[in-house]
Amino acid sequence: MIRLPQYFVDLHIHIGRTKSGKPVKITASKSLTLTNIVDYSNRVKGLNIVGIIDSHSPEVIEELRGCIHKGEAKELTGGGIQFSNGLVLILGSELEIYHESCDGPFHVLTYFPTIEAMVTFSEWLSERVTNITLSTQRVYENSDSIQLKVKDLDGIFIPAHAFTPHKGIYGKGVQKSLTEVFQLSDIDAIELGLSSDTNLVNGIAELSNISFVSNSDAHSLEKIGREYQLVQMEEPSFNELVLALHYKKGRMIVKNFGLHPRLGKYYHTSCEQCFTHVGEQTVCPKCSSSKITKGVFERLEELNDPNHKKVNRPPYVHQVPLEFIPKLGPKTLMKLRDYFGNEMNIIHHTSLSQLKEVVSEPVAKAIVLSRTGELSISAGGAGKYGKVE
Rank of each mutant, 00 (worst) to 15 (best):
L125H: 01
C102L: 01
S185Q: 14
S378W: 02
A244M: 08
F297E: 14
A73T: 01
E75W: 02
Y111I: 06
T133K: 14
S143K: 05
E116D: 15
L32V: 11
T18D: 07
F275S: 10
H56G: 11
G264H: 08
L95H: 06
E234L: 10
G329K: 08
K176R: 14
L230N: 06
V50S: 03
F275D: 02
E180S: 09
A117H: 12
K176F: 06
S185L: 10
P326C: 11
V363P: 00
E116Y: 11
K327Q: 14
I204T: 02
G383W: 12
L91V: 03
L11V: 10
V9M: 03
E357W: 00
Y7T: 02
R17Q: 13
A162Y: 07
E180T: 11
S353K: 15
R226A: 00
C274A: 09
Y247P: 00
E141V: 13
Q232G: 02
S288N: 14
P314C: 08
S270P: 00
I81S: 01
P315D: 14
E235T: 13
S29H: 06
S376M: 08
T198Y: 00
I377N: 04
S126T: 08
A160I: 09
L87H: 01
D188Y: 05
Y339A: 13
L333P: 00
I115G: 09
T179P: 03
F106P: 01
V108I: 15
K291S: 15
N142D: 15
T18M: 03
L355S: 05
N342W: 08
D10K: 02
S289L: 07
E301A: 13
V278D: 03
G381N: 09
Q183I: 04
K356T: 10
P165K: 12
I81A: 05
A73V: 05
K149P: 01
D103W: 07
E240Y: 02
E62W: 06
I81T: 06
S135V: 03
L109W: 05
H69A: 13
T282I: 08
